[in-house]
Simulated assay, not measured.
Amino acid sequence: MQIQYSLEQLLAFQYVAEDLSFKKAAERLHLTPTALSHRIKKLELALELKLFERRTRKIILTAEGEFLLKHVQAGFVQIQQAIDHLQAHKQRLFTITTIPTYATEWLIPYLPDLQRLYPEVMFRVHASYDVVNMHTGQYDLAIRYGMGGYQDLRSSLLAKDEYIAVCHPFLLKEPVKWDAVPLIHFSWGDEYCPKRINWQKWYQQQDLHIDSSQRQVFYNEEGHAIRAVLAGQGVALLSKVAVAHYLKNGSLVQVSPLGLEALDYYFVSLLNVDKLTLDIEAWCREKLLKTLDR
């Protein structure tokens, strides 16, 4: 069946019928009275019915108009109820941007828990070391490694961090010989971490020296260094936050109490933060701090 009338025409009819005034209805619809009158005329022509009787100083509904008004009002109520229902049950997209290590070691393993808590939310994880523009609206929450104090943004501390020497437990069957142990290197690069975090600095603080004959492997991605140390390939300087759950479950052990000062993990969001963002921050902080307080 081909429909010859539009929702705009029916809404115009409803407003005129409720107010019994073209002028008042036109103001509600932000139309001129002439444009509104033309819209009603097109509806009457499409229906082949007279909906109003136009008298000298007023208009009244015809019997057909009264019948139609009752059903048009009910129809618009049903449409609004359907839209309200869909809006209430649609999934919200929530995007978290963070550095690759945090995404791999924390967000991905625990994301199913977060999804169970918020089934109405569809999560997207964006992993990159690059600085992102939070004002574009593409990201709801950033978890960054830095010093805080981000301009025109809200930031709060997630966790303080340090870099510690870790290895697979079987490498500690005998005391570590620091002039012979295989070293796994990981370097952020100065553009990401202005604090110098490397084995040379760690050895100097212990008044030790790296022997030229020591086996060494260099990685530019912390996740690769974590995989290497889990495979028992040597000792690595890694973020305590990144490897916290491996230390807790015994997959890795801390070789020395000495750590190197590093940057810290911060939540970053727009200033007008909403409740969902605050709740997700609280969830992330609780998960992480429980593991760090092992």
Rank of each mutant, 00 (worst) to 15 (best):
Q2Y: 07
Q4C: 09
L7Y: 14
L11F: 04
A12C: 14
F13I: 05
V16C: 08
V16G: 06
E18S: 12
F22W: 12
A25G: 10
R28V: 04
L31V: 06
L31W: 10
S37F: 09
H38Q: 15
K42I: 00
L45K: 10
A46H: 02
L47V: 04
E48W: 05
L49M: 10
K50Q: 15
L51C: 00
L51I: 00
F52K: 00
I59L: 13
A63Q: 11
F67L: 10
F67E: 13
F67G: 03
V77T: 12
V77I: 14
I79E: 10
I79L: 15
Q80L: 12
L86H: 05
A88E: 13
K90W: 10
K90S: 14
Q91M: 14
Q91I: 11
Q91G: 07
T97W: 09
T97P: 01
T98L: 02
I99D: 15
T101L: 13
Y102S: 07
Y102L: 15
A103F: 05
A103C: 10
A103H: 09
T104C: 10
E105Q: 12
P109N: 08
Y110Q: 10
L111P: 02
L117P: 00
F123Q: 02
F123I: 06
V125G: 00
V125Q: 01
Y129G: 06
D130S: 12
V131Y: 14
N133G: 00
M134W: 00
M134Y: 04
H135L: 15
G137F: 01
D140G: 01
D140Y: 01
A142M: 12
A142I: 09
R144T: 15
G149K: 10
G149V: 06
S155D: 14
A165R: 04
C167H: 01
F170K: 14
F170G: 05
F170C: 07
K173S: 14
E174S: 13
V176P: 03
D179L: 03
I184E: 01
F186R: 06
S187V: 13
W188P: 11
W188T: 12
D190Q: 13
E191P: 01
N198A: 08
K201F: 09
W202P: 04
Y203C: 05
L208Y: 14
L208P: 06
H209Q: 14
S212R: 12
R215N: 11
Q216I: 11
E222V: 02
G223R: 03
A225W: 08
A228K: 07
L230R: 08
A236V: 00
L237D: 04
L238D: 06
S239N: 05
V243T: 09
K248D: 09
G250Q: 02
G250W: 03
Q254A: 10
V255N: 03
S256A: 08
L258A: 13
L258C: 08
E261D: 13
L263I: 07
V273Q: 11
L276W: 06
T277M: 00
D279I: 03
W283L: 02
C284Y: 02
E286D: 11
L289C: 04
T291M: 11
L292Y: 06
D293C: 12
